[in-house]
Amino acid sequence: MTHVLEAKNLTRDYHIPGSLFKKAKTVHAVKGVSFSVDQGKTLAIVGESGCGKSTLARIVTMIDPATSGDMLIDGQKVDIARESLTPEMRQKVQIVFQNPYGTLNPRKKIGEILTEPLIINTNMKADDRRDKAMAMLKKVGLEEKHYGRYPHMFSGGQRQRVAIARALMLNPRLLVLDEPVSALDLSVQAQVLNLLADLQDEFQLTYVFISHDLSVVRYIADDVMVMYYGEAVEYGSREEVFSDPKHSYTRTLFAATPRADVESIKARLARKNAA
């Protein structure tokens, strides 16, 4: 079986042009990263700010080209630096962003936001587009009455649902989720994570889930890749990575994550009383 997404040795360099006082320099944002994801599975990419995970997301979503390396989607090689993207390829990968307040066009109604991908990519009739958008709204837990409303009338969690609905309008194979729940409240985060799990089951979707939150990753991921300064320092199944982290950075990351269980609170209070 071919992987939905396969990356071989992807790199991405940014050239910062020099000025009067500074020399030109090259920043290696992603340094030779390889991974693959199968259908219906979730790969979580974990790392802290500046580790290159968002750059990688833009490469996978075919927004920016990779500097070198191969990327295969459904076994088909993609290189947007050399050839323009076919609409079929474009539809295969969609993205959901972190900030629910910037992800929807504030001047467009929800209905227009959802039908836009269909207008661009298909020859569907207006009625069919509307029906499909309505169906998708319900699928992500919103209602038909929301169709004619503007984004500013929605809460952060609802906007994120709309963003997910928009990403699914073109029936993509792969969904890149760039910190989709980081800006949401705890209770809303749980709802959106559940929604993502439901959608994955229903459509056999493949997720690349980018996050800095290990507790979310532990809950949702099948495979985990830990990135540190552009390199994948750890890559394996969730059980492997969480039970037996190999790299020292992964261990630091685990140790730094605050724990909200009763045992750790007891331990902390005991330490405090002893001191």
Binding site: I63, Q94, N99, E116, P117, I120
Partner: peptide, 12 residues
Amino acid sequence: KDYVIASRVAGA
């Protein structure tokens, strides 16, 4: 902004 990139990803 994200919504512009989202439109681009949708093929606009």
